[in-house]
Each structure stands twice: as C-alpha cells, then as structure tokens.
Design a protein around this nucleic acid. Sequence first.
RNA 1: GCCGCCGUAGCUCAGACCGGUAGAGCGGCUGGCUGUUAACCAGUCGGUCGUCGGUUCAAGUCCGACCGGCGGCGCCA
Length: 430
Amino acid sequence: MSVSEILDGKLTGKEVEIKGWLVNKRSSGGVQFLIIRDGTGLIQATIHKNEVAPEIFEEAKKLTQESSLTIRGSVVEDKRAPGGYEVRISELKIVHLAPGDYPLAKKEHGIDFLLNHRQLWIRSPRQMAILRIRAEVVKACRDFLDDRGFVLTDAPIFTPSAVEGTTTLFEVPYFGDKAYLTQSGQLYVEATIATFGKTYCFGPTFRAEKSKTPRHLTEFWMVEPEMAFCGFEENLKLQEEMVTYIVKTVLDKRCRELEVLKRDIKPLRKVELPFERISYTEAVEMLQKAGFQIEWGEDLGAPHERYISLQFEKPVFVHRYPAKAKAFYMQPDPENPNVVLCADLMAPEGYGEIIGGSQRIHDLKLLEQRIKEFGLPKEAYEWYLDLRRYGSVPHSGFGLGIERTVMWICKLKHIRETIPFPRTITRVYP
RNA sequence: GCCGCCGUAGCUCAGACCGGUAGAGCGGCUGGCUGUUAACCAGUCGGUCGUCGGUUCAAGUCCGACCGGCGGCGCCA
C-alpha cells in the first residue's frame, strides 16, 4: 500500500499500513498531525488523544523530523488535510528515532548549504519531483529507441583518446599507462552500427572544461543513437520524433510532479511535429538584425542560443554550421562544402541546445584529411578509420543531453538539480 | 581562463558607507494548546564575525593577501 494510491482515492475507507519517514509534525495538544513520506507521495496522518492507547500517543510525541516509522490506520477523505486525504492512526511503530537536529529546516536555505547536504536535500518534494521526471525521461528515451529496433551497445568509460581533442578530458592512470574518461560514446556506436544497423549508447560522459554556467556539469548523461544507411534529414526526423515522445510521456505520466514544480505546461503542449528549422546562416542574419555582434563563421554563444530559442514556440534545429566551428567527423554539405551536415536542437523558452547531431564522414580519404587538418593523432583513430575501410556506409546520429532535457522540461534555473549527485567544477562532494 | 558579488549563531540574514567588544527570524530544547496547514503562544540554549597580516588607544566594520562559494561570460551537451 502506497501513499500515491491513497491520494488517487483508491483506498478511501480502507485500513492501510504505511512505511515511511516523518516529514513534519504539528500538534494541537490533543491532536497530532504527522506528515509522512513513503517515496510515492506525502500524506497527513492524525492521532487523537482520546482515540488511541495512551502509549501510542506518547510514542508519537517523541517523533523527530525524518524519523522512520510504520503506521496503521484508516483512510478518510478530509478537505482539511493537504492532498484531501488522511490516515487516522490506530497503530504506530518507530523504526528509527532520528536525533532532533535534522540539518534541513522547513524554511529557505542557500544553494551551497543545500548542495553540501544533497543526500538529505533529495528527500524534499521538489527534488523528488525532478528526479522522478528524470527517471521518466530516461525510460522514455530507452523505450522509444528499443521500440524502433535500436540495439543498446554501451560505450566504454575508459578511452584511449579524445573524440575531439585531448584538452577537455579527465586523465586517469591506467596500469602505468594513461586513459581518459569518455567525452562521448559516438565513435563506438559508429562501430556497432555495422553489427546491428541501428544502435545507441546510454551512459555518463565527462568533460574537464572549466565551464562555470547554469547548464554545465563535469559528469552528465547522454543517449547517443547512431544509424547506418541514414542521411541528414532522416536523422533530424528521428530527433524530433524522440523529443516529442519524451515530452508527451512526461506530460502523460508525471503531471503530478510538474504540478509540484509549478511548471506551466502550456509551452510543453506545443511540442509537436515538425520542429522549426533554420540554417546557421539564417540564424546569424537573425542575430545581426537583433543587434548581436556576430560574424559568419563564429560558433553561437549562450546569449545567441537563448535569443534564437525564444523566437520559436517549438524546439528549433539550427543546421549547417561552418565546418571549422564543428567536429572533424562531420560530413560536408555537397551543396556548400564550407558548411557541414550537422544540427543542434534548441529547446524553447530560452533553454538552448539539448541535442547535437550530424551526418558522419564515411569516405576514408576525406576523414584522414580532416584528422590531419584538426591536428589529431592518426594512430589513435586507426580503429575508427577501419570502419571506413570495411563496409563504410553513409550514417548519422546524435547525442541528447539528459540533464539539459530535464532542466527544460522542469523549467529549472540550474542543471545541478537534474541529477541526484551533481558534479560541477567546484563540487565532488557528496 | 575572464568580469562581478558574497563569507557574522545549526539555517536565512541585519550590523559595515560613518571603527567603540554582536542582533533578529527560523530550527533545537522545556512547557502550553483536541483540526494543524512552513501551526501557534511562552521561556531557553546558541557566535574565536572565512583565514592570515596591516592601520588604530580600539577592527565584524578600514587596507592587503589568501581560501571557499555564488552569478555572468567563454568552451560545450
């Protein structure tokens, strides 16, 4: 029996047993009000002095915030109770009596304090809601891809070299040698598509960049689908279908959590196919008209992304960036070799990039040339070049940042709340 | 890496401009209250003012360095 079933009205009038933690206790002398969390929701439980054995009433008096307990009682509908339902306690057992110095007060805290107590902070209703939505987003990604015949082929965390250069990687000792924490599983799913056709990896990725912004973590999760015999347009189509599916799933299954977050869901309801599309060149013109100092050839910065994102009600693809601003493996546009067949998907409401994707170079000679142009060590990429030697095919893929997606769907001001234990440039504890 | 802001009670902050030995609310604890909604009421405990150095008769307050954190930019998902 769970609190969520009580709140859904399924157990009204029934006897229930709830196992959980004491969120808060109020008393009016003869009546004690216990707010209990069981992992599925919060419920008020009441104890009346003249309705229970004196020792139960006294036991309840001892309860401190976050003590764990088991209660039995009957469920009644009562407008005075938060959530509209409450449990009238007949039996109560303290599982563990916490000391009366729970660090998190019921009032406000600073972010530094909260992050230092993340292990307790995640018990709060708001954090519960965010983490539940995160779990739903992850499940939606996997269901979507699994249902379309993608095979999960996870990429290694320890890697011998960078995907796009070595400066941003965490270096770790590896039995007298050096290894790096992965920055992306993309190169590896480019290999597994020759095994299964359509594959994806899903796992943590690491960036040692000293990015100090509300949208960066040093450790974050990406889902990276890759498709053989797939061109640029087909790739975009999969992306917009997947993002639409994710948003619809969360709206469908996690509306209670969105309510806890006071998330206005009207903008989310507008996420429908097809998404908007503008070229990089059009984006630059749009920005210049709006007064931004930007020249063709420069990559888009955070204020640029924010502006573009705010011009559309739906997610928008910005495609065909200058080749020099993007990664070495991206396929040049046959109609204009100065740009590559890539697209970043900008979430609306000012959130900016949540997906980066592209068609990959499948021609061996061109790829070798690009590795040279980018000053990358060819030896490290020999295995990757093999994929162009033995049965190379046009192929495309993308990476969707889980935390950025959750941040947008929950409309959060900072990405650090989207993951149970965030790792940022200033924080590896707890 | 760059620019800006902040470190005072367990927490959130005031006191700093104008130097004279520290205050509130919340939390904790004790007591009261038979329907509370971050309950309320009364009482009570609680501080080497981030660290080091300097100026001064006197520094939480002025000056310098350092440490820690936050916000924005850059880089990126």
